[in-house]
Design a binder for these strands. Structure first.
Ligand SMILES: NC(=O)c1ccc[n+]([C@@H]2O[C@H](COP(=O)([O-])OP(=O)(O)OC[C@H]3O[C@@H](n4cnc5c(N)ncnc54)[C@H](O)[C@@H]3O)[C@@H](O)[C@H]2O)c1
Ligand SMILES: NC(=O)c1ccc[n+]([C@@H]2O[C@H](COP(=O)([O-])OP(=O)(O)OC[C@H]3O[C@@H](n4cnc5c(N)ncnc54)[C@H](O)[C@@H]3O)[C@@H](O)[C@H]2O)c1
Lengths: 209, 209
DNA sequence: TTATTATAGCTATTTTTTTCACAAAATGTT
DNA sequence: AACATTTTGTGAAAAAAATAGCTATAATAA
């Protein structure tokens, strides 16, 4: 099966499926149907099958999918069969919440460096990571083989920090600042804009319902 | 202009446009073209015009849009021409970061109540809001006319908290827990799944590039 | 007054994504 | 062994979204 472009919505759903399968596995469930997955994750069963079909045939007709097998496939597809070293820039309220979150490590994202510019914050500990000065950005990215950068600085500093990360070899950026960032085409960029999310809610409340 | 369904992607972009217009207004810019907005927010100019066309005609051919005028239109469209009272349930790392974020108030989202179950957290102050016990949920939602609820509790508690919010009259839920929530059809639900976002990055890193 | 230029609004086209529905395959049943 | 049941995988249809390009209109220059 030859595929050049996987819809982003598909990738997001695969992530959700994989977490659901993980839950089922822990509950001791051995097989699931696309219908079960659909029910558990709030999509249609055709959607589940279509999403999986981009990557191969993982099920048995009449039976369904073996939970652990499908889970392992999804983990590979999502690139979670290895560790990703992550840097967080900005150890303010949001950055430190992210740094302290255990859920990322469970999925293979290892936060290895957290940087800030505030002298009062530099040197403090977030779990077992010490916040270090921004100056160390290039050094840490290189020596720790960091591929993913998280932007948790004020909007005014976001592009500058991003440029430094990209220049030093970071391949993907998760941006929490409310700023449209420019990155080279080969760098993967995602924006998590919390205000936008709230505003989608207010739109829906104000517009219909 | 009769419209029944606005693409969610459109609503998200409108939010981004509005913030860009806000920035332009502060810089003293008086008019913009769809091309300028496109440039500033990373979309195509046709997309900008299409998005706006769902709601009316806001520009002048040959000229463009008056910045403040278009901004005000977007604010109305997004339902930001009023205040929305928000409750945050869960005052842990993420919940407190959200509670302390000033950016929400700037857009009309007023966090009026923050609840938790941890006795060590209850009674502490987040800015000028005191964290209160979960038991007050129904009382606060009713007396403060809260329409938006933010779920920042562990996944295991998310559905239960959601049910209580919905039962008490909350109309929209922003869910930060990695749990697929069930809400009645008339309640607006959005999920901000940070792990999914990281996994879209790792997928892209692992799959092509 | 008449071109010329810029750009919004709109319509048509293309592309992408989702949904539908059914043949094929595996298992269970009579 | 034949038949019924379940559920995948997939091609086709439908729906949704994005893109392209044309038309109308306003401002400006000739
Ligand atoms: N906290 C939230 O809930 C929330 C919600 C939506 C968006 N955001 C966005 O996330 C980002 C961080 O928000 P926050 O609430 O944590 O802000 P914050 O002010 O608490 O933290 C920002 C941190 O970045 C540091 N910093 C500033 N410039 C820096 C630089 N050049 N390099 C490294 N560190 C630098 C500051 O010292 C500070 O510690 C902001 O862009 C904000 O708009 C936050
Ligand atoms: N922190 C992050 O960066 C991050 C990232 C991704 C997802 N999340 C999700 O966000 C949610 C909160 O994460 P966190 O890191 O803030 O966790 P946390 O443990 O720091 O905070 C959770 C808080 O919820 C409180 N709580 C537990 N049950 C409650 C209940 N029934 N009612 C009210 N409060 C209750 C706890 O006392 C605690 O203070 C979790 O679902 C987590 O999976 C967080």
């Amino acid at each position: 099966m030859k595929v050049f472009k996987i819809p982003e919505a598909t990738v997001m759903r695969l992530s959700v499926y994989s977490r659901y399968l993980n839950q089922l596995a822990r509950e001791g469930v051995e097989t699931v149907s696309s219908g079960d997955i659909a029910k558990g994750t709030g999509v249609s069963s055709a959607q589940v099958r279509k999403d999986l079909a981009y990557f191969g045939e993982f099920g048995t007709r009449g039976v369904g999918y073996k939970v652990d097998e499908l889970y392992n496939h999804l983990i590979k597809i999502l690139g979670l069969d290895r560790e990703w070293n992550v840097i967080i820039v900005g150890a303010g309220k949001l950055g430190s919440a992210l740094a302290l979150y255990q859920g990322f490590a469970e999925r293979g994202f290892k936060i290895v460096t957290v940087l800030d510019v505030d002298p009062d914050i530099i040197g403090t500990k977030l779990g077992n990571i010490e916040v270090e000065p921004l100056e160390l950005l290039e050094e840490r990215v290189r020596e720790q083989n960091i591929t993913i950068g998280v932007i948790a600085v004020p909007a005014s500093a976001a592009q500058e920090v991003t440029d430094r990360l990209v220049k030093t070899g970071v391949k993907a950026i998760l941006n929490f600042s409310p700023r449209v960032l420019k990155v080279p085409r080969e760098v993967v960029l995602r924006n998590v804009d919390l205000s936008v999310n709230l505003e989608v809610l207010s739109f829906n409340l104000a517009f219909n319902r």
